[in-house]
Design a protein around this nucleic acid. Structure first.
Length: 777
DNA sequence: GTATTATCTAAGTCT
DNA sequence: TAGATAATAC
């Protein structure tokens, strides 16, 4: 088998030790995917039935790619039988086939975060709890973390620690909300994301026969990104592996970035204790990145305390240093990045697909998008508000959902009066009360209106009857029509298409187009054969919906997206690599996020996130920050991130004058934190130190008249009205003054750069964009 | 019950 | 800025 020759010693050990528990600590870029792929191929070559292999990956796309690579190695089509996918998709599949054992319908709905929060809002209203105190997002995250720790609502209410936490936070009723939430989901035949793991645990705990079945089915279990598993996932793996203990976990504690959703880094740190017989292999050679990148990344992660000891190194070329860029605003940052990409495409013969722009928060994508669009650089965005979360898409999908599972309360509430058909709030309130009083679903109430004492008037009853007729007619076509045909029928008969078509605003047109796009997607889906089991029956809406809910951020990629610059959050970038990476927004309170600043553990997670960002790069990494950016429509000033300073200086290169780097001396140079491209008048709060400022020029007031609170907060470090040298009418031979370098004569001007001979320090080249100059004469 | 307008408040990361 | 909700008019 020649594939073994393509592996280094540690990789080969990790591939060949197929029996018993194995932990692979895989440094960034150390060929982890290769090991997983070859290990599975090796298993199959040794005669293991692919059907007996369970491989849990972090995205479905990764699973698909891995299957393709395995197929290439082993030949044939056996690889399709491997159980491979994300935890959520693999176990939702198992849950569907075992659903009735835990009292769920086979066609249970999967509630996304939005559905879950809407339900929580409804419950809060019913319970008379103030949404301002019981913020739905917070309640949801309390419930979520309870589920990830396998706590039912009843257990939550009994747990004294949790109860005292909630009492201290003045939210003692969260447990009650959880109880109602739990039962409402159940009545709706719905599971949220956490339920997919939670209910799997319930299934395996309460049904020994089922546990036994899957224990023996999954003779070999592989778990990728093990550092990001939570308790619920951990127990699933542990239980399933208990029969054979052929469990191989792969991960890197330095890349653990999902503690916020319950991931427990201890899972990887404790593996040896869990399986005393286990073998550990460390992959330490990085094949991805240059020496400078690897060394810089190591110097970053060194600032964290608890980690598994390892020495990531590379024998790749030294490469360029990490470049640090500074911009005046978020929009300038975008322009700068777009320009750099544009130039590199020519200078390095690179393609758009060779570049990635990574950021901490989705909101940062907009400035980048705009700049790329202006330069005509093709790009694609992953994440943010995904296609399937847009209102019009969710509306149409809600029709689909209700046809498959009429008890789906959240879907029903979205569509019973959309498009408007005269079933308003009053009627729905009455129905809701009747459903609660009779401990049943809303669907059951409206299908048997005369059996419940709802008090709804005759007019509304008729309208509800019409809605029911329509839904029943859709449902009756589920067998006879394929997904595309039925989807089309629903979009037009329901009135959604008409409603959107009549809206001629740009947003309305775009919504209409989105619906068309969804229908196109349905068509494509219908025409693709079901590869999983070779089934040639046309795929219906049922199958479509099951796919849709669990698509991950990076799963959606169309053909035409292939040669484009990638924009994504660092979280989404995990596991990916790009020749050129731009990590933007390296600012305090953004990255690291403000919310991480209160705890050491959170800050360390942010640092690991930065480590992940840096290690995505093969050839070059650029990091940048803006000295001001818009947040909620108003301008705030930013300090460079502490992470920049944490990179060992041997591997860093500043693209602007380092003496003006703000973080080096905050006090003496407070204006230097802000470069001067844009003349943002910074409001009344900033003129206290006027004497040290260059004379104010007529800076347009672009800051809102009412000083935002954010601005106030930072105003003591805020600059004078920044003066852009670029906006001055400079000429050769002029005498100018620079804050730092004193007076000098302009010797040359070209392309935004000025060569200035300073009296004290000699000739310097300055970028007009950044330099703060005043004309002396 | 519905449509329009005014006001509020939220952007932290993902399945 | 933008979506969600409350207030208002019809």
């Amino acid at each position: 088998m020649n594939y073994l020759n393509e592996l280094n010693g540690a990789q080969r050990d990790a591939v060949e030790n197929t029996e018993g528990p194995v932990m692979v600590i895989a440094g960034a870029g150390s060929g982890k995917t290769r090991v997983l792929t070859y290990r599975i191929a090796h298993l199959i070559n040794k005669g293991v039935d692919p059907f007996n292999i369970l491989s849990l990956t972090f995205t479905n796309k990764a699973a698909q790619e891995m299957k393709e690579r395995i197929s290439k190695i082993i030949g044939g089509s056996e690889a399709r039988n491997i159980w491979m996918g994300t935890f959520h998709s693999v176990f939702s599949r198992i849950l569907r086939s075992e659903a009735e054992k835990i009292g769920y319908p086979q066609n249970f709905t999967i509630y996304d975060t939005q559905d879950a929060k809407n339900l929580i809002k409804t419950i809060l209203k019913e319970q008379g709890l103030d949404e301002k105190i019981y913020k739905p997002g917070l309640v949801y995250s309390r419930i979520s973390s309870a589920k990830n720790n396998l706590l039912t609502a009843a257990a939550y209410c009994k747990n004294t620690t949790i109860q005292s936490e909630d009492r201290q936070a003045a939210k003692p009723k969260i447990g009650e909300v959880y109880k109602v939430y739990e039962s409402r989901c159940f009545k709706s035949g719905a599971m949220d994301f956490d339920d997919l793991l939670f209910k799997t645990n319930v299934l395996l705990r309460d049904h020994p026969g089922v546990l036994n079945k899957y224990q023996h089915r999954f003779k070999y279990i592989l778990v990728d990104e093990y550092q990001d598993t939570n308790f619920s996932q951990y127990i699933i793996v542990k239980k399933l592996a208990a029969a054979f203990e052929n469990v191989c976990v792969v991960g890197d504690d330095a890349q653990s970035i999902y503690a916020f959703r319950g991931a427990n880094i201890q899972n990887i740190l404790n593996f040896k204790t869990d399986y005393p017989e286990s073998k550990t292999f460390k992959l330490e050679e990085n094949y991805r990145s240059t020496q400078n990148i690897v060394n810089a990344a190591n110097s970053i992660i060194k600032h964290n305390t608890e980690q598994i000891e390892k020495n990531v190194f590379t024998s790749n070329v030294e490469g360029n240093k990490i470049k640090v860029h500074r911009a005046a605003t978020d929009n300038e940052e975008g322009k700068m990045v777009a320009n750099l990409i544009y130039d590199t495409q020519f200078s390095a013969q690179a393609r758009p697909k060779d570049f990635a722009i990574l950021y901490r928060t989705n909101a940062q994508s907009r400035a980048m998008e705009e700049a790329l669009r202006r330069k005509n650089i093709p790009y694609k965005i992953h994440g943010g508000q995904s296609f399937y979360q847009r209102k019009e898409i969710k509306d149409l999908l809600s029709y689909f959902r209700m046809i498959i599972n009429p008890n789906d309360e959240e879907a029903l509430k979205r569509i019973i009066n959309y498009p408007a058909r005269g079933i308003g709030k009053t009627s729905m309130d009455k129905i809701g009360i009747a459903a609660n009083n009779n401990d049943t679903s809303i669907w059951n109430v409206i299908t048997h209106l005369n059996q419940f004492n709802t008090g709804i008037n005759a007019g509304a009853q008729t309208k509800i009857g019409g809605f029911l007729e329509m839904m029943k007619s859709f449902a009756s076509q589920i067998k006879s029509k394929n997904a595309f045909e039925l989807g089309n029928e629903i979009a037009s008969t329901s009135g959604i298409l008409r409603d959107l078509y009549s809206d001629k605003t740009p947003e309305g047109i775009s919504r209409y187009e989105n619906i068309q796009e969804l229908l196109n997607g349905l068509k494509e889906f219908t025409e693709t054969e079901n590869e999983e089991d070779g089934d040639v029956t046309p795929r219906g809406l049922t199958e479509f919906l099951q796919d849709v809910a669990l698509l991950t951020n990076v799963d959606n990629e169309s053909e035409e997206d292939r040669d484009k610059v990638t924009l994504m959050t660092i979280h989404s970038a995990k596991g990916l690599e790009f020749p050129y990476v731009f990590c933007v927004g390296l600012e305090e309170n953004l990255f690291p996020s403000q919310m991480s600043l209160t705890s050491r553990a959170d800050l360390e997670e942010e640092r690991r996130l930065f480590y992940v960002a840096v290690t995505r790069a093969e050839k070059e990494i650029h990091i940048s920050y803006a000295t001001s950016r818009y947040k909620w429509g108003s301008l705030i000033f930013c300090e460079p991130s502490r992470f920049i300073e944490e990179i060992s200086e041997d591997f860093v290169e500043y693209t602007f004058d380092q003496n003006t780097v703000a973080q080096k001396n905050h006090n003496s140079n407070f204006d230097e934190t802000h470069s001067a491209q844009n003349n943002y008048g910074s409001g009344k709060t900033t003129y206290k130190k006027k004497s040290t400022m260059p004379p104010k020029r007529n800076a347009p007031e672009t800051v809102p008249q009412t000083t935002p609170k954010h601005l106030k907060k930072v105003s003591n470090t805020a600059p004078a009205p920044p003066e852009s040298a670029a906006s001055l009418n400079l000429e050769k031979g002029m005498m100018v003054n620079h804050q730092k370098f004193g007076n000098g004569i302009i010797e040359n001007l070209d392309n935004g750069k000025a060569t200035i001979n300073f009296q004290n320090i000699g000739t310097k080249q300055l970028l007009l964009k950044f330099a703060k100059l005043t004309i002396i004469k």
